[in-house]
């Protein structure tokens, strides 16, 4: 099965009633010098369509690593991750890359927008990579920016935007290719309380409308409380 077929399969199954993503006894170990660190330790979980899940835990508890594993950014050393029913461990790097592009949206604490591009161009980037034509991506980028409340900031560049606005652009970018799963790693980590609240509202709005399924890794208690369900990680393990 080639990359395109894999992606299509995920598309179909992710629309199905099963979990959007499922982790079965997933572990991830890293070598740090001569020591081996287990960042995620035999975690099993699943996220259903339209769900808003918050993964909480102290720094170094493995939240980011778990999100990376769920999104196919990283591969587990043990266990397996099924995204839309497909085992990510059985895909090659090119297939996972294509899957991430079309079916996973990522939001980072530091936004990682391209400062030389306008907000619209940043949102267009994943669509251009996916092969959308210029007109289509121009229109969709405009719609998405309006959706996150930045309809009047489409031609601004990231340095001309506030932190909250930049994160909204990043969320619009993550939604560009209509992903089945949106993963946000500390999305409010660099934002003040009021702006964080706005981002939470936006996430709630997106999940309520059924536009996406959301997993957020966060320290932010208010954001975690706002999520429909919560999981707590301690030392890489799910805390009961």
């Amino acid at each position: 099965m080639d990359a395109a077929e894999t992606t299509d399969a995920v598309t179909d199954e992710s629309r199905d009633v099963g979990p959007v993503v499922r982790a079965d006894r997933v572990s991830r170990e890293y070598r740090v010098g001569s020591a081996t660190v287990r960042a995620v330790d035999r975690v099993s979980m699943e996220v259903r369509r339209g769900e808003f899940l918050a993964v909480t835990g102290p720094s170094g508890s493995g939240k980011s690593t778990l999100l990376h594993l769920l999104g196919g950014v990283d591969t587990p050393t043990e266990g397996r991750v099924l995204l839309g029913g497909r085992d990510l461990g059985r895909m090659n790097e090119r297939q996972r890359e294509k899957l991430r592009l079309r079916r996973v949206g990522l939001v980072f604490q530091r936004f990682y927008l391209l400062p030389a591009l306008t907000a619209r161009e940043n949102v267009e980037l994943p669509m251009a990579e996916a092969g959308s034509d210029r007109k289509e991506r121009h229109e969709r980028a405009g719609e998405l920016l309006a959706r996150v409340g930045l309809g009047d900031r489409t031609e601004h560049r990231p340095p001309q935007l506030s932190g909250g606005q930049r994160q909204r652009v990043a969320i619009a970018r993550a939604l560009a290719n209509r992903p089945a799963l949106l993963l946000a790693d500390e999305p409010t980590g660099e934002l003040d309380r009021d702006t964080s609240r706005d981002i939470l509202e936006l996430f709630l709005d997106l999940t309520r409308s059924g536009e996406t399924t959301l997993v957020v890794g966060t320290h932010d208690a208010e954001l975690a409380e706002g999520a429909g369900r919560g999981l707590r990680l301690v030392d890489g393990r799910l805390a009961t």
Binding site: H68, G71, V73, E97, K98, L99, R100, L101, R102, V104, G105, L106, F108, R110, Y112, L113, L114, L125, P126, E129, R173, A174
Partner: peptide
């Protein structure tokens, strides 16, 4: 950081 984020997003 930006390049790693782009790669994570599926940019080839």
């Amino acid at each position: 950081g930006t390049i790693a984020a782009l790669r994570a997003m599926g940019i080839s």
